[in-house]
Design a protein around this nucleic acid. Structure first.
Lengths: 182, 182
DNA sequence: AGAAATCGTTGATGATTTTAAACACGGAGG
DNA sequence: CCTCCGTGTTTAAAATCATCAACGATTTCT
């Protein structure tokens, strides 16, 4: 069970201070329809839902991505980052326990020679980051490059990729990925 | 005109190597319906579209957020980051020209005393980051804190916020925000 | 208090979607 | 050649959604 479209629409509408009739008028649909949708007595067609959201206005993407229940921690001490790494790779996640995050932000440390494993990684979403200290060899699809401090990367995570620290020094990077990998 | 649901579903389905019948079977709907949706001869109800996507599987949120047209630059030299800052605040953006990015990743440098301006910032989305060097005073809503190197933050950008470098040293942070601010 | 306005809900009808079953096309193998 | 799969597409009937108009409840103003 994922999203309750009816309750969600109601919450969004009220958050924008609109009545069913007011929204219906802006959207060019009937108020009754909005009532039925909000009670989950019908499941609107995508085109109808789009018309309704246009009246707010809000995109379908925003609607399905938006999460209301949020009143979360903002500041994180260095020791409040959640450590997810193994022996030679430290992955420290910001806001780990925040439900329905849009991103994973990580403070990563790779020991000399450390890597993300034999197999190339493939998953949904996008990721990017900046090298802060040391050097990082990144392979994405066919191409590969050793990034120096201050250099950066950004790619679609569905393309097979792999990280490796080729240097004798520890490598530190700050990265972000969306939707959240961790 | 936003998204072409039919074409989009077709692209997603093919990306996962599924036939209409195969997907229909997994989703518990008929193959004909998928055909009609993909030709935009009908606009599916949200519940139907959800059933179809469950067969992939993919969430409604992902479906409406995902963008296909992508074959972009992966690696960025330090000098290939796009500088957006003013005199005392340097904002260097990763993958600036990539269309339909899901995130903005920034390498930011604040001169001593520099800030994001008198007014509190408010916009859609979420943002987070890690302090790499120097100190950063961050105010979010009512609360405020001075973050040290290695410390981090994450919050909803719709809450009024402000950054200021209170130290005598330059402050360097890596940040990410979604949807992209820049 | 009473009238007027606004709210969300409901029932019958017309419009649209969804199903089930058949169709047409193309490639693989006997 | 020709049947057997596998595609995706199409059609009529069944199911669901969207509209229109009316309803009861609540608030606002006279």
């Amino acid at each position: 069970m994922s999203i309750d479209v009816g309750a969600h629409l109601r919450a969004v509408r009220q958050m924008y201070g609109l009545s069913q009739r007011e929204l219906a008028k802006r959207a060019g649909v009937t108020n009754g329809m909005i009532s039925l949708i909000e009670q989950n007595r019908v499941s609107p067609s995508v085109s109808s839902l789009k018309k309704v959201l246009d009246g707010i206005p809000m995109s379908l993407s925003e609607f399905f991505t938006l999460d209301l229940a949020q009143a979360p921690q903002v500041f994180f001490g260095s020791d409040e980052l959640t450590n997810l790494g193994s022996d030679d790779v430290s992955l420290r996640l910001v806001a780990a326990r925040r439900p329905n995050r849009a991103m994973s932000i990580l403070h990563e440390c790779y020991a000399p020679g450390a890597d993300t494993g034999e197999e190339m990684l493939t998953h949904k979403g996008e990721e990017g980051g900046v090298v802060v200290r040391g050097t990082m060899e990144l392979t994405v699809g066919g191409s590969s490059r050793v990034l120096q401090p201050g250099e950066a990367y950004y790619f679609s995570s569905s393309v097979p990729h792999r990280f490796r620290n080729p240097g004798r020094e520890e490598c530190e990077i700050i990265s972000a990925s969306t939707p959240p990998t961790f």
